[in-house]
Design a protein around this nucleic acid. Structure first.
Length: 211
DNA sequence: GACCAGGTCCTTG
DNA sequence: CAAGGACATGGT
């Protein structure tokens, strides 16, 4: 069964690339991406952007600043993303981990992706998706992000693998190139936002379950 | 007013 | 292990 899933995913990747071409998605410096990765948990990206602006206005959009800031100030800045109390704690935990373990983002560049991923997953409030987002979009690693949209989309195509198996499938298929990883995930989200509702896909031009 | 949003953690069965 | 609730604001 995993063989047919591979074929479907291969087709999906190339179809989406043809459909969208190159797109820019989640630009920004590493600290900003890491912060955004937590803020976007179960939250629309537009609200995350507003929160990032609030943080920047108050000079709080860096891990160093997050460590020093009062928790209440962080909460105020990110309120518009919802779950603001838990997210403020998660930001503190992330910033503390990066500084305590590595002395800063710059010192993470030489370390293997697997080691960084384990470190991130040990932080309370960072799960698989947030860790992979940080690795892929913040640290330019080849760690594929599986989110709710990706899952919806592949279910639509009759693919039944679980999240981590899906991640492995994508990583077996994609070339070992960060650019391809970020493009593919971005394509999936942009397509699924438009066509894959929570209940059912509207008009799955690219993802018929018959291949 | 109902329902959903680029998750994660904790508690139950 | 799977399922359900909590966390919370903002948009449709």
């Amino acid at each position: 069964m995993s063989g047919s899933s591979s074929i479907k995913i291969e087709k999906l990747i190339s179809s989406l690339h043809g459909w969208f071409g190159e797109i820019t998605w989640w630009p920004g410096y590493a600290d900003e991406v890491m912060i955004g990765a937590i803020l976007t948990q179960q939250t629309r990206w537009e609200n995350v952007e507003r929160a990032l602006e609030h943080l920047k206005k108050r000079d709080l959009c860096s891990l160093d600043a997050i460590i020093r800031a009062d928790i209440e100030d962080i909460e105020d800045a990110i309120r518009c993303t919802g779950f603001y109390r838990v997210k403020a704690k998660r930001l503190k935990a992330l910033a503390t981990h990066v500084v305590k373990s590595y002395g800063g983002v710059d010192n993470m560049v030489g370390l293997p992706t697997g080691q960084l991923r384990s470190g991130l997953l040990n932080i309370s409030g960072i799960g698989d998706e947030t860790a992979d987002s940080i690795l892929c979009y913040g640290l330019f690693r080849t760690s594929f992000v599986i989110d709710a949209y990706t899952e919806r989309m592949v279910r639509c195509m009759g693919i039944t693998e679980k999240r981590m198996d899906l991640k492995n499938l994508f990583e077996e298929i994609l070339p070992n190139d960060n650019h391809c990883y970020r493009q593919t995930h971005a394509h999936i989200v942009e397509y699924a936002k438009e066509f894959c509702g929570r209940k059912r896909c509207k008009d799955c031009i690219l993802v018929s379950s018959n291949g």
